[in-house]
């Protein structure tokens, strides 16, 4: 009986993991050359920035908020670092920390608006989204190419793995962040407070948890993750452009939701989010191997999954409510 009960919170996570392997298996059966470690690794390489953003988003969703400014922050980081590197000729070692700090502060400001003035997170981060995207154009309307040697080096460097496989430095950054997030989530007071507040902010306050500080910090963390993702994205694109990472916030939210993090707060899985990203990756790869379908099928498939998972969560919640009222 315990096992039966165990499943409900993890149901989305389990479905996602199973689905990922099923899709990968299907691809391997259907297409030659699909079944290889490198195909799997390429999914990580192509989606490292999405993993990073989605992790920040997961924290925000667990606490019961939303952050739709992440895509724009990525674009701003790309643009600003391109500007500082190429036009101001600053060293990469100055630019990168500066960008991370900016992202963090950007999030802190958004979080403060949300907490101190009790404005809906959707609206605040909407303004943040406009602002960051607009600031890109203030810097430049056109693409700025990044020719900085450090960036070039990181962009092209391949970390060799056994059996002729390789990954990029970005993947290493993403994996390091996943590890850090897992630790933060499970082994620190901050991480547990995030869950508590998302579960029941009122109770959390009564239990003496620092609700305000945690909330603001979570948005700061999300801003930091977006900035880190922006740095990784600029390694990937080697340019700054106002239209970079358009709509990425929705991909990040979708990844988290598909990975078993509901938008109602209190529940969330870092590993689930990683699988949520990978599912999008495997769908992309499948469509690539298929050859005739266009890339927009990815969006439809993702939306379909999103819908499925949201409705599923709703059913789980309403069933829980019903059993509660009966008992």
């Amino acid at each position: 009986m315990k096992k039966m009960q165990l499943s409900y919170k993890y149901i989305n996570l389990i479905i996602t993991v199973v689905l990922f392997f099923a899709l990968f298996a299907a691809g391997s059966v259907l297409y030659n050359g699909f079944f290889s470690t490198q195909v799997l690794l390429n999914m990580l390489i192509d989606n490292a920035f999405l993993i990073i953003t989605a992790i920040g988003m997961t924290f925000v969703l667990i606490i019961g908020g939303i952050d739709i400014s992440v895509g724009s922050v990525i674009a701003l980081v790309c643009m600003l670092s391109a500007y500082l590197l190429e036009i101001q000729h600053l060293s990469a070692l100055i630019v990168i920390p500066l960008m991370l700090l900016m992202g963090f502060l950007f999030g802190i400001v958004q979080g403060s608006f949300i907490h101190f003035f009790t404005i809906q997170p959707f609206i605040v981060t909407l303004a943040g989204m406009f602002l960051a995207r607009g600031l890109c154009y203030v810097i430049s309307i056109d693409t700025i190419m990044i020719t900085n040697s450090f960036y070039q080096f990181i962009a092209t460097y391949r970390i060799p793995l056994p059996f002729d496989n390789y990954i990029s430095i970005s993947v290493m950054i993403a994996l390091a962040l996943v590890a850090a997030a897992l630790y933060l989530n499970n082994y620190t007071k901050f991480g547990r407070a995030v869950y508590a507040i998302g579960g029941n902010a009122q109770s959390a306050m009564l239990m003496g948890l620092p609700v305000g500080r945690t909330k603001v910090l979570v948005y700061g963390l999300s801003g930091f993750c977006s900035a880190l993702s922006g740095v990784v994205f600029s390694f990937y694109m080697l340019s700054g452009y106002g239209l970079h990472a358009m709509g990425l916030e929705m991909d990040a939210i979708a990844s988290a939701v598909i990975g078993g993090t509901p938008l109602t707060g209190g529940v969330g899985f870092i590993t689930g989010t990683v699988f949520g990203v990978l599912i999008q990756g495997v769908i992309q790869t499948l469509i690539m191997f298929q050859g005739t379908l266009s890339s927009w099928w990815t969006k439809i498939a993702v939306a379909f999954l999103l819908c499925l998972f949201i409705v599923l969560q709703r059913i789980v919640v309403s069933r829980k409510e019903r059993t509660k009222s009966i008992s």
Binding site: R192, Y195, A196, G199, N200, S203, A204, L206, M207
Partner: peptide, 11 residues
């Protein structure tokens, strides 16, 4: 009950 039902009993 003013607790966080989503967390474990020990937490």
């Amino acid at each position: 009950v003013n607790l966080c039902a989503n967390l474990s009993v020990a937490e």
